[in-house]
Design a protein around this nucleic acid. Structure first.
Length: 743
DNA sequence: GGAGACTGCGTTTTT
DNA sequence: CGCAGTCTCC
């Protein structure tokens, strides 16, 4: 079968573009991955490029794997010569190959978010910095933000309060350098600096990579785009695939502007729009199109389908979040009875906190479900402890790991002793591990014993298989025993056993990429801190870069619960989109940010376009959030859907509502919090003079439009009501004055 | 050193 | 409300 069979004209055009910079605007469900992979296969099949000349980059390991396996199925070649991976994975590869030029030890460790935070905490403590003035989390955010915009501490002009932060940024980098560790943003920045500085290397790769393909281009940040440009060179053929309407990661640095910049900087001649959707029925697409049409800054795109209109969207108004969940349970049961697989049904929500109520209802109904998001395998505490031991074995300079396990399992080394060790290390300019020999406090013996333990493992390590080394480490450090003796430790013991399995099954993919011009630096001296065990080093990098699955109870047919963000790129026959309330979706916090509402709308667009056949929308009059019951109005996004595509399952209890673009769902906690009555029950304060109003009732105000009664208090001339006017916020009105009409 | 009380906080998240 | 992180006391 020909590669190009069954492609539509636009897909075909994209796949067979000449070797020029190109931008593909690929709408949801338009066959984006297919175009990307077929493009690569076509280029190779037609001899336009060899596998080694291809670089394809994605954001997630999952997407990279998917791409690889699809290419494998299309071509009878071993795709290992290609550089296909995540930005971070490819940077890791680059830096390992050129560690000397990048000024890194050959076995540098990768810090994940937690590691980075504890590293920063250590730094802040050591520097006697007031943690109030400099919360480690904020500093972490600051450092990552700076790195992602390509700035080193020296390049930031820090004045006043910022000065301390900039200093700490510099100190953090120095600490990482000393310990031989690299955080996620550093992988990118270091690579960019390497390529910028090292002309021969840059030219080597620019010559090598004849085709650079980028997935989800709208999600790239400034630094990632710079990285691409360095590898591509002036005219390099970058094949960028993206969808500005699905840009939902601005909050973590993604810059949609890269699409326009790319178009301009490379004078892109070919912008191809993929607008035919192969996923959803017409009503669903109509809803998506109409909704996203409310955004102003778009590149412009309109999805269409050959499929029929299908069923209308269904809209359900629930009295409370609990009732919303109960409705979902009923609907799911119906569908299940009619033969739908649970795994083809997704329940989506804006924020993770919303899942609890739904989980509760599903659990009681005996419906199996799987929640995405949450701790993943390599992020679990017990696994991280085990990895910390392995990392210390691999490299005794790794202070992050040292600090994590020096007293875990407990071996009588308290905080004071560790502090002593830390100042000793600082004074000597050595690692914590090396400083052990210099301390003579009361914990000296414990420290020495720890050193013996680690050194013993280090001596044996080079002669052991990886899995033997892991299991030996787990036993000799007492880690497994520690959890065996813990009441609820069974799961953790199991995870540790799983780690041994993972080690046993770990094979390093040899790096076939012709690595680079000969380095000009002197001989690489292996630091005595490093243990020789290539597989171990590769395994540790793998663990950091690929955190593994969440709780994968795969194989079982289960409902899929996740945030809308997590659902991006996925599709389901049936989707329940829940919590469509002002303040929640769009989220109140987004309204104060520039472009915040539009990003929320894009998020809604992503949510809608996940559904193939059935899309159920729901919202609740009241919702328990942060321990308080909040009364919300239905989301403006519901109003933005085409009426003819939406079927309301519940009578409209309240009239239309205010559409002002400002305001939101102000925290009602300020002042008096409404009590948690069920809407429709009698008013709150016992003696309240209600003027015929009830909590949860809809009312209309001349100026503020429609709202919901949130609280009633006082009586006589002092009778007041708090009313949530959606985008106008919550107002407290005197009932003797305000002209309120029930609706 | 560790269990239990106490405080504060609470979008979205991959690598 | 539910949690994570900190503090206190044994």
């Amino acid at each position: 079968m020909n590669l190009l069979d069954d492609l539509n004209p636009e897909q075909l055009a994209a796949v067979t573009l000449p070797d020029e910079p190109a931008l593909i605007l690929a709408g949801a469900g338009s066959g984006k991955t297919r175009v990307l992979t077929t493009r690569i296969a076509w280029l190779i099949q037609n001899g336009r490029v060899g596998p080694a000349g291809v670089l394809a980059v994605t954001f997630t390991n999952k997407a990279a794997r998917e791409m690889l396996s699809r290419i494998e199925s299309m071509l009878p070649i071993n795709p290992r010569g290609m550089w296909i991976g995540t930005f971070h994975g490819l940077c890791n590869r680059l830096l390992r190959a050129h560690h000397r030029d990048a000024n890194l030890p050959p076995t540098f460790q990768i810090l994940d978010v937690q590691d980075q935070l504890s590293s920063i905490k250590r730094l802040v403590k050591a520097g006697n910095v007031d943690e109030e003035r400099c919360p480690p989390r904020d500093l972490q955010y600051f450092i990552n933000g700076a790195k992602e915009s390509g700035q080193r501490a020296a390049q930031i002009s820090g004045a006043g309060h910022d000065k301390l932060w900039v200093e700490l940024y510099a100190a953090y980098d120095a600490q990482c350098q000393k310990e031989g560790s690299v955080d996620f943003a550093e992988l990118l920045l270091r690579s960019v600096e390497l390529l910028t500085r090292h002309e021969a290397l840059r030219e080597h790769y620019q010559h090598r990579f004849r085709h650079i393909l980028v997935d989800e281009f709208q999600d790239t940040n400034t630094l990632q785009y710079r990285w691409l440009k360095l590898l591509a060179g002036k005219s390099g053929p970058i094949f960028a695939v993206g969808d500005d309407d699905q840009s939902i990661y601005r909050f973590r640095g993604a810059n949609v502007g890269n699409m326009a910049d790319f178009q301009r900087e490379y004078n892109v001649q070919h912008v191809i729009k993929l607008e035919q959707n192969y996923r959803s029925h017409g009503n669903i697409l109509d809803a998506a199109n109409q909704l996203i049409g409310n955004n102003t800054r778009r590149m412009g795109k309109r999805l269409w389908t050959d499929a029929g209109a299908g069923e209308p969207l269904r809209l359900f108004e629930a009295g409370s979040d609990g009732l919303e969940a109960a409705w979902i349970v009923d609907e799911v049961r119906d569908q299940h009875r009619q033969g739908a697989r649970l795994s083809e049904i997704a329940i989506l929500y804006r924020a993770n906190a919303q899942s609890r109520v739904i989980e509760h209802a599903l659990f009681n109904a005996g419906l199996s479900y799987r929640v995405y998001g949450g701790l993943r395998f390599f992020e679990r505490a017990e696994v991280k402890h085990a990895l910390a031991y392995l990392r210390l074995i691999a490299n005794t300079d790794d202070d992050v790991s040292f600090a994590r396990i020096i007293n875990f399992p407990a071996r009588g080394i308290g905080a004071r002793s560790v502090e002593q060790l830390q100042s000793a290390a600082r004074a000597a300019g050595s690692s914590l591990f090396a400083a052990i020999a210099t301390v003579d406090g009361r914990a000296a013996a414990s420290f020495a014993q720890f050193a013996v333990l680690i050194n013993g493992l280090r001596e044996n390590a080079p002669h052991m298989s990886l899995s033997d080394l892991v299991s030996e480490t787990l036993e000799r450090t007492g880690l497994t025993n520690h959890y065996r003796n813990e009441r609820d430790g069974a799961d953790r013991v199991e995870n540790l056993a799983e780690l041994v399995n993972a080690a046993a099954g770990f094979v390093v993919e040899a790096d076939p990429g012709a690595p680079a011009p000969a380095p000009e630096a002197g001989p690489a001296e292996a630091s005595p801190a490093m243990v020789e065990h290539d597989l171990l080093h590769a395994f540790l990098a793998h663990a950091a870069l690929e955190a593994g699955d969440n709780q994968a109870s795969q194989g079982q047919d289960a409902l899929q619960l996740m945030t809308v963000h997590a659902a991006k790129g996925l599709e389901f026959d049936t989707v329940f989109l829940t919590g469509l309330e002002e303040g929640l979706f769009p989220h109140e916090n987004s309204l104060s940010e520039a472009d915040g509402l539009e990003e929320e709308r894009r998020l809604m667009y992503v949510a809608i376009t996940r559904a193939r056949k059935r899309l159920n929308l729901s919202f609740a009059q009241s919702r328990m959030l942060h321990g308080q019951t909040r009364y919300g109005m239905r989301s403006r996004f519901v109003e933005e859907l085409p009426e003819k595509s939406v079927k309301a399952l519940t009578p409209r209890l309240r009239g239309g509502f205010a559409t002002a673009a400002q305001g939101g769902w102000p925290a009602m906690g300020s002042g008096a919090a409404p009590r948690a009555e069920v809407p429709g029950a009698a008013g709150a304060a016992g003696a309240a003079d209600t003027h015929g109003l009830r909590i949860g009732q809809g009312v209309r105000h001349a100026k503020f439009g429609d709202g919901v009664v949130v609280r009633l208090q006082g009586s006589g001339n002092d009778a007041r009501a708090q009313i949530n006017f959606g985008s106008f916020g919550v107002k407290e009105l005197l009932l003797t004055v305000a002209k309120l009409q029930p609706v």
